[in-house]
Design a binder for these strands. Structure first.
Lengths: 211, 211
DNA sequence: GACTGTGAAGCCATTCACAGCT
DNA sequence: AGCTGTGAATGGCTTCACAGTC
């Protein structure tokens, strides 16, 4: 590998391409061109080829790409060739929704634990997971060697939840609380997913249209 | 206003700044500099000033910005000076989580209806909303002049849900189904929020680190 | 002295256009 | 002929650095 400077936008698209290839593979499609991928996901063919070119040469000139083969490469690139373990903290509606989210299991990401501080929820079964007490979180993450922590608690508890996860040696955090976490060591991968932002981009654009 | 070419990245940051200012305002902070905003949300001071400069001059040289004032301007820019009406389609865990999501109400976005096709859910109270039958969706959106439709149904029903919303004259759609909607007229604002992508960026980065 | 507002420079991502294979 | 892979060109976003203002 020659470079670490790959645009994040490319990774996002790679993830989308990969899911599209999964669909095609399930339909029995064997071969596909950059133009067809482009059409299917709504980008330009040159973009598809450039994104792939960051990682190697996967196609055959004059022919295209082998669907299964390309997807296997992309899964590997995305780090999905191993089974990552996830815990979700917060067993409210969002935490539950994420536990049931098919997109994770389909991609080899398994939710191994679900935690909450609310005693009414502790013990409840959510899918295959029994909701555990947040006091058990640190030990669980450490013993089970959990890789990823998903934060689905109210904003005011987000930072302290992150602290516990970091302390327990988690490798990555996905934060859904509507408040960007700032205080996380940069050895831990962090992404903030802000649901409100997405709505506000819509209201911004609607506002623009009316004038 | 001189230009329509404002980077989407700027809008995203604006939304984040605005929420940060809300917090400060609630704490009684009166004045703030671009450097302090930058620190609070994790970007550069020049970036903050440039983002604001797209829309006007809101500060005082040598002093900084008035918190209340700047936030009022930002809310207006983001289109949040009016009360948008939202319906959520899909009353599963994700739909419920979104209904309860404080980030919306705090920003003047009100969820006025919640719909599902599952008869077990219809009639159930979720916060202030009674779950309605999806058959009532089109008429409701039309009569109530709903602005935004949030799609929280399984992928396979996402496109048909979008079609009903479009037919009823919705202005914007926020899609949470893990499959990009492609077939929506471009008079309707559309955003796809893909939860799986966010996790895959984490696994990609973790994979990179190990080599 | 402190901090904003902004043209210009620098940097990064996307698109173009064509050489290289099959 | 058809499609990939890629250097070069373009376009867009971010950072710099400083003039302007309090």
């Amino acid at each position: 590998m020659k470079t670490y400077k790959i645009p994040e936008a490319s990774i996002i698209r790679l993830s989308v391409y990969s899911r599209y290839l999964n669909q095609l593979d399930n339909k029995g499609v064997l071969t596909i061109s950059s133009g067809e991928i482009a059409e299917g996901v709504g980008v330009s063919p040159a973009q598809v080829r450039k994104d792939l070119a960051y990682f190697g040469e996967f196609g055959t000139r004059g022919v295209g790409y082998n669907v299964k083969d390309l997807n296997r490469h992309m899964m590997k690139i995305l780090g999905l060739n191993k089974a990552w373990k996830i815990v979700i903290v917060g067993a409210g509606n969002l935490g539950k929704a994420l536990s049931f989210y098919k997109g994770f299991h389909e991609r080899g990401l398994s939710v191994v634990g679900l935690f909450d501080k609310n005693t009414d929820l502790i013990g409840e079964m959510v899918g295959n997971n029994r909701v555990m007490c947040i006091g058990e979180l640190e030990q669980f993450v450490r013993e089970e060697q959990v890789d990823i922590g998903v934060i689905a608690v109210p904003s005011k508890y987000a930072q302290e939840t992150a602290d516990v996860l970091v302390e327990a040696g988690i490798k990555a955090i996905l934060n859904f609380a509507p408040k960007a976490l700032v205080d996380v060591p940069n050895t831990v991968e962090l992404r903030n997913v802000d649901l409100a932002v997405n709505l506000e981009i819509l209201t911004f654009n609607m506002g623009m249209k009316e004038e």
